[in-house]
Nucleic acid binder design. Structure first.
Lengths: 146, 146
DNA sequence: CTAGATGCAAACAGTTTGCGTCACT
DNA sequence: AGTGACGCAAACTGTTTGCATCTAG
């Protein structure tokens, strides 16, 4: 039930209340390996806080993502998206509004490995440039000014 | 109701039956802009084939993806995935079994733009190396031999 | 004391499945 | 003629929402 001083600070720095559940969720993600799903995190957290609800896990994961205390593997789109651009290209993805636009392959210098991954048969490489699109960065500038 | 000769060939080359619905779905994706969802494609296809079912659209999109006639924007995971690795890294993603493993950032030479995208405020760059993991490439080798 | 956090259940969205019928090869 | 495709509805999975209760600040 106790909340550690450093977690309390971390929350305070982001304007979040330091709750026990929140701490356990955070610690659990940090302690896991690989790329767990919310469900997997939930199962794991439940061992320490049996009464926790899945909604609370989702809720907190989203807060952590928004505050950049945690990262997601790749910007999660809830539906499949098809490519219509037949030319090799990469993507500019707005982390705020999730808009995706194409970046011609040639706008990037060719990618080179220092050390090739062993036993992995590469088919293609896709680069996601994450950031704020012009609309969203204009908005966040305005927010900072006021 | 007619099926074009080139589409017929395309299907034949991949061992697929050349059906009218299939053709319209394919043409529709090719004709759209951006990164449409199956739902959006469905709505669009419906204008030409009002009786089409959403299941058929999904069915065909998956066939096109498997046969590499179309590509998806980023390997679609049906659930959110969290990073547990706090070090900067990229991903090796198996297009067959969808397994994700980490690739230390330093195994790749730093990425450089030839032309920086205008009006986009870059936060970070995430590289997905798509291909077959060792297990899946062993399996597909065996299939080719037999 | 009050804004925000939690837990629960119900709602939702996107996708898949099972099955009877139909069409391509 | 037979395999695979289609259309429909029902099932499923992952996620979100509304609301009553509780707790940190």
């Amino acid at each position: 039930m106790e909340i550690k001083a450093d977690f309390r600070q971390l929350c305070h720095a982001h304007g979040l209340a330091a709750t026990y559940q929140r701490q356990i969720i955070y610690e659990t993600v940090r302690s896991l390996q690989g790329h767990p799903s919310p469900e997997a995190i939930y199962e794991c957290v439940r061992q320490r806080v049996p009464s926790i609800s899945l909604a609370t896990v989702y809720n907190n994961l989203h807060l952590f993502l928004k505050n950049e205390l945690l990262q997601e593997v790749s910007l999660h789109q809830k539906s499949l998206r098809l490519e219509t651009n037949p030319h090799p290209h990469h993507h500019l993805i707005c982390v705020n509004c999730k808009a995706i636009s194409d970046l011609d392959e040639r706008q990037l210098q060719p990618l080179k490995f220092r050390k090739k991954p062993q036993g992995f048969h590469i088919k293609r490489i896709s680069v996601d440039v994450l950031g704020l699109c012009s609309l969203c960065s204009a908005k966040s500038d305005r927010r900072k000014q006021s």
